[in-house]
Design a protein around this nucleic acid. Structure first.
Length: 202
DNA sequence: AGCACGATTAACT
DNA sequence: GTTAATCGTGCTC
């Protein structure tokens, strides 16, 4: 065992305001472990989706089979399918029965890079995780991971604390890809990213 | 049962 | 800069 064995972030990390969780997830390490293979990357971009009133959040449609996980306790994975081909990974936040989550949009690859390149079709390092669908592809995440508990390592998917980022390196902007979402939700600065990181999306 | 659209990406012009 | 790919989801009829 390493002297300072890293543990999954505890549930109380996630049971806080979603913007706070999104911001503090930057710099943390997303871990995917399957059959002893460890794939990790530092989270460099994340977005907050907050409740039924947020018209960019899937929970705007209320409680449905798809959004059920967001209504559950914090610290669980909400994985959904979109555009007929892509999977997105979110972490459920806030208290049970309040639907909110953080979309993980980009990682800086750290461990298991060769495996990630194979999963992504042999791409350049910065193209492995610089987008929400690329990230899930690099880590082999899809339908089966929806609803996993990220607070126990047995799930094979969790987040570990990382180096604390100076506040000057954290930037915010409107969320990406919201299409015809009305104001004010379209412009809410709920996308957080590591300023000047070459591993953020777009 | 049918329809419009999507928290995107890769491959174009 | 534009656009096709591709199908689950939620809404309307």
């Amino acid at each position: 065992m390493p002297l300072h064995a890293t543990q999954p972030l505890p549930r109380h990390f996630y049971s806080r305001p979603t913007q706070t969780v999104a911001r503090e997830l930057l710099g943390c390490r997303l871990v995917r472990q399957v059959n002893g293979t460890r794939l990790t990357g530092v989270i460099v971009e994340a977005e907050a989706y907050i409740g039924e009133s947020d018209l960019a959040c899937h929970a705007k449609a209320g409680r449905t089979p798809r959004t059920a996980v967001m209504y559950g306790p914090p610290g669980f994975a909400y994985v959904y399918f979109t555009y007929g081909m892509h999977w997105m990974l979110n972490v459920v936040t806030e208290e049970k029965d309040f639907p909110a989550a953080v979309l993980l949009r980009a990682i800086e690859p750290l461990e298991g890079i060769k495996v990630m390149q194979r999963l992504r079709g042999g791409k350049d390092l910065r193209l492995l995780g610089n987008g929400p669908a690329r990230l899930t592809q690099a880590l082999g995440i899809s339908r089966a991971e929806n609803g996993l508990d990220l607070c126990v390592s047995e799930s094979g998917l969790w987040i570990e604390p990382g180096e604390r980022l100076p506040s000057g390196r954290i930037a915010a902007s409107p969320r990406i890809g919201l299409g015809q979402t009305p104001e004010p939700w379209l412009s809410k600065p709920w996308r957080y990213f590591v300023d000047r990181s070459p591993f953020v999306s777009r």
